[in-house]
Write a protein that binds this DNA or RNA. Structure first.
Lengths: 247, 247
DNA sequence: CAGGCGTGTATTGCATACAACGGCCCCGGC
DNA sequence: GCCGGGGCCGTTGTATGCAATACACGCCTG
């Protein structure tokens, strides 16, 4: 067996490809997933594909059917709202743990760097600044989770973030198309700084609340994105939303 | 294909059997999981077994090895503490949502029934009372999660509870062997009632804090259980604890 | 005409065979 | 005696073939 090629294995290929197909809406939400057709479409055998199906089912993107097989899960507006709120709760916990478990100030360096590098990006505007913001935003959130020093919490966050629209920058991709986009980034960066400060000062409860509110910023964005057809189309996983009537 | 036999499928058989073997410590923690040996031991083929391996890996009981294959995960004391704390956070969120989303008082009936039936159980003592307590305790927690009306939160809780020692009544099994066991149950039931009251009154924040503290009761139990060799042996998943030196 | 039953088909679940890769041991050379 | 290389073996990853079931369609019957 190809033992060390976790990166290039057929299972990985199937998982990534399947996830892509699901998130891009190439498989109709609510519809049954045809194994054989998918296997040849992804260029893999049915065996690794079935592993991928199980993986996606555990991620919550697919739902095991009683009679066998899987259906693409459809997400309601409430599901997305709950997922965002839940991410806030979990990142809030991560922030609190980070504050409570902070050893030396040197541990804060990654977080500080992300915040510092975000400053000039927020001052600027335009699509390229947004791309940079997304990258740094991701670094910030990764650094935050790392500071919690809790694999259990990290895993739980990873599970939630895998859901559509729940990722910290899931809704940022379409910001360029939205009004008030820049203001939102300014607020977000303000919260980043406040979060860093709270953690540095060992204020766990404050850090937790800031992180929750930070996530709720995404919830506000959600309504904006849902109101704009073009913006919604730019969001990964948009086709999985049930009854995307207006746009 | 045997389409509708989700309950009796080979995959289910493999998953349940494998989980049992892991939790009972029949597979050495940190050790590689031998596929072929396991397949014949469980009486299934390697194909459904591999699905089961992936499932257990997603649950966090197994860890995918870089070179291929899986190892049985070993849990540190910190892991268990974090898992319990995390359950508190998630059940706290469920409690808050339950309070915020409570429609009519009739929705509270399952929770009220569980609390009411727990009262006489707490008054009594002995092993059979403990068994009854465990059953009702489970009903209470299930009712709580249901009241949150959030599949996303429910799924997240289910993921955490799958970890050893993290379940609401994981540590209760050994209570009969512990001192002060009865007092702990009294406190737990007091918290149940307070939680119910807070939800009924729509006090989300209070409900959240009570649920967190309720989970921390389990954390206190953890230290007691870890100090008692016999009590620890009665806990499901105990062999997965790393360096269980004292007992 | 409607409802139920039987058959056909498509699809999945499972088992097995094969292949490839990493580790280990032995042997040879330095 | 030690280090390096090559071959063998064990293990896992992958592919394919087979079998079983559920759904659908059509026919028959009341």
């Amino acid at each position: 067996m190809p033992r060390g090629n976790t990166a290039s294995s057929q299972t990985t290929k199937a998982t990534l490809g399947l996830r892509e197909l699901v998130l891009e809406g190439e498989l109709a939400p609510g519809g049954r997933v045809p194994e054989v057709e998918l296997a040849e479409r992804l260029g893999v055998s049915r065996t690794p594909l079935r592993i991928a199906l199980a993986t996606l089912a555990h991620e919550g993107l697919l739902e095991p059917l009683a009679g066998g097989g899987f259906v693409v899960r459809a997400f309601t507006h409430d599901d997305v709202v709950d997922a965002i709120e839940l991410r806030g709760v979990l990142e809030g916990t991560a922030a609190r743990l980070a504050a409570e478990r902070l050893g030396s100030r040197r541990e804060l360096v990654p977080l500080e760097e992300a915040v510092a590098e975000l400053d000039p990006v927020v001052d600027r505007t335009g699509p390229e600044a947004l791309v940079r913001f997304v990258a740094l935003n991701e670094r910030f959130h990764e650094a935050l989770v790392a500071l919690a020093k809790s694999p259990v919490v990290a895993r739980s966050i990873a599970n939630v973030v895998a859901l559509p629209f729940a990722s910290p920058n899931a809704l940022l991709s379409s910001h360029a198309l939205l009004p008030r986009s820049h203001e939102i980034l300014v607020v977000a960066q303000h919260q980043h700084r406040a979060l860093l400060e709270a953690i540095a000062d060992g204020h766990g409860t404050r850090a937790e609340e800031i992180a929750r509110e930070h996530a709720r910023l995404a919830r506000r964005n959600l309504d904006l994105v849902l109101a704009d057809r073009d913006a919604l189309a730019a969001v990964r996983g948009a086709p999985l939303l049930r009854s995307v009537a207006g746009g």
